[in-house]
Design a protein around this nucleic acid. Structure first.
Lengths: 274, 274
DNA sequence: ACCTGAACACCGTTCAAGT
DNA sequence: ACCTGAACACCGTTCAAGT
C-alpha cells in the first residue's frame, strides 16, 4: 500500500448551491456569507479556547496523528472524528472536504521551513532550507506523498517563504530574467529528493516484501545487466528502486548531500553565466 | 481534489492464509502454488490472446484510461471492472490488490524511458532521459502522483533502466565511490520537477478555484512581501505555488530546462572534483 | 454557532459457487 | 482456470433536526 487514492462521490457537482459551511468551493470572492468557520477569525473571544469544542486546529493535529500512525491509506475523516469523539458530520462544520483537510495538514507541517534571510550566504541559506524541509518530511513521512500534489499550486504555502526565497536569489545576484526559473528550481529541489527518500513502502507486510525484493534483486542476471550487477552490493538498500526500506529506516544522507551540492553548484554556474 | 488516499479494510491481516490468486502477499519465494495468474507465463498458448478474456494487460490499460479521464481520485477497481464488463471480483483473479494494479500502471507507463546508451554524450543522454520522463508524465499527468510512491522502491522499474543509467555514469568518468550517489541524483532529478509541474490541481471546479487563487495572489500585501510583490507579474501562473493551472495547460518549459541544466552543470562539477 | 443522528451512494476485498 | 453473484465492513458527504 503506497500512494494511490480514492473517492466516493463521483463529482461534486458545483459546490455553490450548498447552504452553510465551507465557502472554499466556488465563487471568486471569499467574503460571501461570513458564516463559514473555515474563513472566520480564529479564537477572537479568547477565554477557554483550549476547551472541549472542536476547532480546525484540533482537527488538523488529530489528522496528522492519524496519518503518522496509519499512513495516508489508513486515513479517513471518520477515524479523525472518532479520535475526537464526535460525529463525522461535525468535522464538516470546520472543514470543507477531506482534501481541504489534507491541504491544511500540508500547510501545518510545512510552516517555518524557510530560514530567516540575511545571516547566511545564499548557498548556506539554501542548504538550510533543504535540510529543514527534509527534516519535516522525515518527521512526517506519510505526509510526503501529499507534498507533490499540494505544494504545487496552493494557498497552503505561506507567501513569506516565497518572498524569502526570491530575496535570497536576488541578493545572490541572479538577473531578473533568471529569478523565476531559479525559484522553480529551488522549489523542485526542496521536495524532489526527500519525497522519494521517505516515500512509504508499498506493503502492509514489510518483512515479506523485503524478502521478496531481495530475492528479486539477487536473481538479476549479471550477463544481461553487467553494470548493475557490478554495483549491486554498493547499491542494495542505499539507492532508489533497489531498496527495501525507506529513509526512515535507511537514510540516504550522502546521496542527499550530493543532490543538494549538485543543485547549488549548478546554480553557481548559472550565476556565473550572467 | 488532488493527492490524498483512502482504503477501506483497515489492515489486511496477513495475506498468507488466502487460497488462490495473488501470491504477492507474503512468502519470500514466489514459486509457491503456481496457481496465481499474477506470476504465470503470459499468453503461452498463443491463439486468440486478443479475445474476450480478461488479462492483466487489458486491465492495466483500462486502468490507465480511467486514470487519464477521471484522475486518481475518481479511480476505482469497480469502475475498471465496469468498463470491462465484468464483476469486480473478476479483476481479483488477475490483480492482487488495488495497489498492485497501480504499481503495474506505473510500470507500464514508465517502460522505455531510458534511451539507448552509447550514441550520445552523457550530458545529452541525461537530457534525453529527463525529457522522455517528462513526456510520459505530460501524457499521463494523473499518474504523476503515483511515481513518487511507486518508483522509489519497486519491482516496477526495469533493471534495464538502472543498468543504463549506471553505465552512462561510469562512462562519464565518475569514480566508484560517486556512482551510487549520482545514480540517486539522476533518479530524483528525473521525476522531481515534472511530478510537480503536472500535479493535478486541487479542485473539481477549476474556474472557481483559479479565480479564488488569483484573488488571493492579488491581495498579497506589497509592504510585507516586497520581493514577492515585485516579481509577481513575472511569476503568475508560471511558477510553483503561484499558479492556477498545471503543466498541462501552462507548461513550464524554460524552468524545466533550467532545472535540467542546473543538475547537469552540478554533475560536471562533481566530476571535475574527482 | 455548532453538533447529533441517520441516510445515500459509493468503495476494496472475500468467498462460495458456478462453468 | 477463470468468472459470477452476493455479502462484509468500511468510506465521504449531505441534510434535517436538535441545542
Amino acid at each position: 500500500m503506497t500512494t494511490s487514492a480514492r473517492k466516493s462521490t463521483r463529482v461534486e457537482k458545483t459546490g455553490i448551491t450548498k447552504k452553510g459551511p465551507s465557502s472554499t468551493g466556488a465563487d471568486s470572492g471569499r467574503a460571501r456569507a461570513g458564516a463559514s468557520p473555515a474563513s472566520r477569525p480564529r479564537s477572537k473571544k479568547g477565554g477557554t479556547t483550549g476547551g472541549s469544542g472542536l476547532s480546525k486546529e484540533r482537527i488538523i493535529s488529530a489528522a496528522i496523528e492519524q496519518i503518522d500512525r496509519n499512513g495516508l491509506m489508513g486515513f479517513s475523516l471518520r477515524d479523525v472524528a472518532r479520535s475526537l469523539g464526535v460525529y463525522p458530520s461535525a468535522v464538516y462544520w470546520h472543514v470543507a472536504t477531506r482534501d481541504d483537510l489534507l491541504a491544511s495538514v500540508v500547510e501545518a507541517t510545512m510552516a517555518d521551513v524557510a530560514p530567516e534571510p540575511g545571516k547566511l550566504s545564499w548557498q548556506d541559506w539554501l542548504r538550510e532550507l533543504f535540510s529543514r524541509c527534509r527534516e519535516v518530511i522525515r518527521r512526517h513521512p506519510n505526509v510526503a506523498q501529499l507534498l507533490g500534489g499540494h505544494l504545487v499550486a496552493n494557498a497552503s504555502l505561506s507567501p513569506g517563504m516565497i518572498d524569502r526565497i526570491l530575496s535570497v536569489l536576488v541578493a545572490a545576484g541572479f538577473k531578473n530574467d533568471q529569478i523565476v526559473d531559479m525559484y522553480n528550481v529551488v522549489i523542485a529541489t526542496m521536495v524532489g529528493f526527500s519525497t522519494l527518500e521517505f516515500a512509504s513502502m508499498p506493503t502492509d507486510d514489510p518483512a515479506g516484501w523485503a524478502a521478496q525484493l531481495q530475492e528479486k534483486v539477487s536473481s538479476i542476471r549479471a550477463l544481461e545487466f553487467p553494470t548493475l550487477a557490478r554495483y549491486l552490493p554498493a547499491m542494495a538498500n542505499r539507492s532508489f528502486i533497489v531498496r527495501w526500506q525507506n529513509g526512515t529506516d535507511a537514510a540516504m544522507d550522502s546521496s542527499f548531500r550530493a543532490y543538494v551540492e549538485t543543485a547549488i553548484a549548478g546554480m553557481e554556474r548559472a550565476l556565473a553565466r550572467a
